[in-house]
Design a protein around this nucleic acid. Structure first.
Lengths: 254, 254
DNA sequence: TCAAAAGTGTTTTTTTTACACCCATGG
DNA sequence: CCATGGGTGTAAAAAAAACACTTTTGA
């Protein structure tokens, strides 16, 4: 991250409570209407979009920090998280942007402010059930909303770069880490799962073989209840079985 | 990492030059006599083994910091490096160990010393050509040497955990990232490469099919010069072609 | 000329892919 | 009763694994 904390109520002692020069940036992915979406914020003070982010409290695990940051934005507590990279260039600092924000708040811009220093940022991507998320802005952000990953606006700081890296890793992990199931509701049809895969891979897949392949992973449980809807055979609902999923990941790595 | 800097000549201003509460730990792998090895240090002051590590200077990229740390230990400058994880538990601090070290140096132990704080550590693994490395101790370490990964001594701090994570990631990346070639000299025989794979995977592979599989990756170039040795046909030497390797990684990810 | 190690060719097995077929449902 | 989406079976193609054969070398 890099938020602007200039007008936080406890602004003056906040910097003592966190690890200096270390931030967390989160790339939150969701899946809706056959589109892969990412959650972005718009700052109140500077007219730019950014990824949700924050800092690590002194007595807080870094992963707990990521969960806290995401809890605020999404309303969900138990989110699937994965550390995908660390951004640590020596020149990774944004004094101009932060000073602009300070000005916008009516403060004297201060290039020596702790937030203007060089920051090492830890990148997490999160996978969420789109329908469960309540995008929530806060005291620093005017808007919090979903964007189709093919239509994201310009991002400030180096967030465009961070986003690209997250997407890259996510695609790499699609097969390896059973990424897909974290983006769907607890139960889903095979068609929905296939749509997700096709969106990820950017190509159509064979319906019949896709079904076989997914079932052969032995991580899905068919829910006997059926789905009711259109003028056609009702599809089965499937549930991703966490236990089987872990067994799958186990045996993959040996 | 967590080194003990108590007796460094520029001890007093060193902490101003680095990012606070952030460290780097490196797991250096080498391959020798059909064994996977890891480079460990023994501290001068406390009688314990540890991974090489260090801190990030204010005007230094984190990857450059890792290279600097490794350069000291190995004598090699251009090392293959990969960030494999970040260790960021809130309780990741080792005041007792550091204070013991301070005592051992004849200093007053100080629980408020910067090195006793909670540290977030960035884990890199490095892959090196064993024969090129000159294990080098320094002012803080009494010994720097290789250990078979199945026979490593107890490690201090949380370094045993860090090492395990590195090994795990390394195994995962064996096929994906062409890990193996970084552990061999510039030219090698197919047999040597196979030995390396067998050591990694912990099982024997079919010689003939292994050869075909490696050649089918299209990243190896056969060097016409042959090898001279035993009472048998001389094997070809192969060279890993960096360019072809990159092309391979490219197409893997789409 | 034989044993040992290296390289290539061929067959067998397994896995993937393509495609044909049946089922259920609402209009 | 038929169009549509969903599920299963089967044949063809491709990839992996197993195994047989040839080459080179020093003793």
């Amino acid at each position: 991250m890099q938020e602007t904390l200039k007008d936080s109520k406890d602004f003056h002692n906040y910097s003592d409570k966190i690890i200096q020069q270390l931030s967390i940036d989160c790339v939150v992915f969701g899946f809706h209407q056959n589109q892969l979406k990412v959650l972005l914020l718009k700052s109140k003070h500077i007219n730019e979009w950014m990824l949700p982010g924050g800092f690590v409290l002194q007595n807080e695990d870094i992963e707990a920090a990521a969960h806290r940051i995401l809890g605020i934005r999404t309303g969900i507590q138990d989110i699937y998280l994965e550390l995908f990279s660390v951004f640590g260039s020596a020149n990774r600092q944004f004094p101009e942007i932060h000073q602009a924000a300070m000005r916008a708040c009516g403060y004297q811009p201060d290039p020596n402010h702790w937030i203007c220093k060089r920051f090492v940022s830890i990148g997490y991507y999160a996978l969420v059930d789109f329908s469960k998320v309540i995008p929530t802005a806060d005291e620093f952000s005017a808007i919090c909303d979903w964007f189709d990953i093919n239509k994201i606006p310009d991002l400030c700081f180096d967030h465009a770069h961070i986003f690209q890296k997250a997407l890259e890793k996510l695609r790499q992990n699609l097969d390896v880490k059973l990424v897909g199931f974290n983006l769907l509701p607890p139960t889903f049809t095979m068609g929905e799962l296939q749509n997700l895969y096709e969106t990820f891979l950017g190509k159509k897949l064979s319906r019949t073989n896709f079904q076989r392949k997914m079932l052969s992973l032995e991580v899905l449980e068919r829910v006997e209840k059926k789905f009711s809807g259109g003028a056609h055979k009702a599809p089965y609902l499937y549930r991703f079985d966490e236990q089987k999923g872990e067994a799958f990941l186990e045996k993959k790595h040996f």
